[in-house]
């Protein structure tokens, strides 16, 4: 792993360098960018995408994908919203939300492992099914008026300074990092993505570990849902549309190979922050919204290209 580790540090170091370069450029254009509040804002902005992206990294590492994360988020939002407005204890509601996310992910995993449907197609299907369920639950209407105590619990600020979602993001990143690097499950996730057949022929229960990985994707989406619900105070069944693409982008920028077997939680975490730093920077410097799309897309392509260049260098 020594050689690989060097490479990994290098890779994540590269994102950091890009991040710093970006901070310097945006600060030069508008000094407000470097202000404490703005930086807190950048990290907070990245929380939702970061949570989903870290989750989706597990699916991608197994050489799969999960397109249904946005719809999973919508179901969790409306269900937890309904429970909260009917007076359920916020702590219990949060656990129910996480459980729902996990189960929706597990369902994806079962479609992929038991019915042998390709991950892209299986989750393309559930993306639509889950979205439909979210609409059915509320009849298409948003769930309004989230109780204050829930909003404070999830989206408040510690000492009135640091937003709680930042802690949720970092906490989830630490737990998933440990899962990936210090448990058998993590080793199997890498080896399934690297060579599923060889892993299966080593007597590893590939199906179980894949299902768990997709369950974890669901948990990431559920956590993002809770943050979004607390921040907005309303639960819309339309929430989370297109979030899967931002999440995949963060993972790709972070060095996760869409072919599976390669990537890290730290990389995805930094990828999400970089995307958010870019978006905030473009807003702060007054760049037109249309150009923001172009900039975001270009960054993805450049990052993945540099990744390729780096791995070629590493080979030699």
């Amino acid at each position: 792993m020594l050689k690989i580790k060097k490479f990994k540090i290098f890779r994540e170091f590269g994102i950091l360098v890009a991040l710093f370069a970006m901070v310097i450029i945006f600060t030069a254009l508008n000094p407000i960018y470097i202000s404490f509040n703005n930086i807190i804002d950048i990290i907070q902005q990245s929380a939702i995408n970061g949570l989903i992206a870290i989750g989706i990294t597990f699916a991608i590492l197994t050489a799969g994908i999960d397109l249904s994360v946005g719809s999973t988020l919508a179901i969790v939002i409306v269900v937890v919203g309904k429970f909260l407005t009917s007076g359920l204890n916020p702590i219990i509601a949060i656990f129910i939300g996480i459980l729902i996310g996990f189960l929706l992910g597990v369902f994806n995993g079962l479609l992929i492992t038991k019915l042998k449907i390709q991950p892209f197609v299986a989750t393309l299907g559930t993306m639509s099914v889950y979205r439909g369920i979210a609409y059915v639950i509320t009849g298409g209407w948003p769930v309004l008026n989230m109780p204050r105590d829930f909003r404070n619990l999830v989206s408040g600020r510690v000492f009135n300074i640091i937003p709680i979602p930042i802690f949720i993001l970092i906490g989830f990143a630490i737990i998933t990092h440990i899962l990936l690097n210090h448990t058998r499950f993590g080793t199997y996730v890498y080896s399934i993505g690297g060579n599923e057949e060889a892993t299966r022929l080593s007597g590893v229960n590939v199906e179980k570990n894949k299902v768990l990985a997709y369950g974890l994707v669901g948990v990431g989406a559920a956590l993002a849902a809770l943050v979004l619900l607390a921040r907005l105070g309303t639960g819309e069944p339309t929430a989370g549309q297109g979030y899967e693409l931002d999440a995949i982008a963060a993972a790709a920028i972070g060095g996760t190979s869409l072919a599976g077997g390669k990537g890290s939680v730290l990389g995805t975490f930094l990828g999400a922050i970089l995307l958010s730093a870019l978006k905030v920077g473009l807003i702060v410097t007054g760049v037109d919204t249309f150009w923001q799309f172009i900039a975001t897309g270009s960054i993805i392509i450049i990052a993945v290209y540099l990744e390729h260049v780096q791995s070629q260098l590493y080979k030699k």
Binding site: I4, R184, T187, Y190, G193, N195, A198, V204, G261, K262
Partner: peptide, 20 residues
């Protein structure tokens, strides 16, 4: 295609069947 995992090192490839 069936014996070892290309992105894993020797320790992990050797451990794959016995980690449990």
């Amino acid at each position: 295609t069936q014996g070892f995992v290309k992105n894993l090192n020797n320790a992990n490839n050797i451990g794959l069947a016995c980690l449990e």
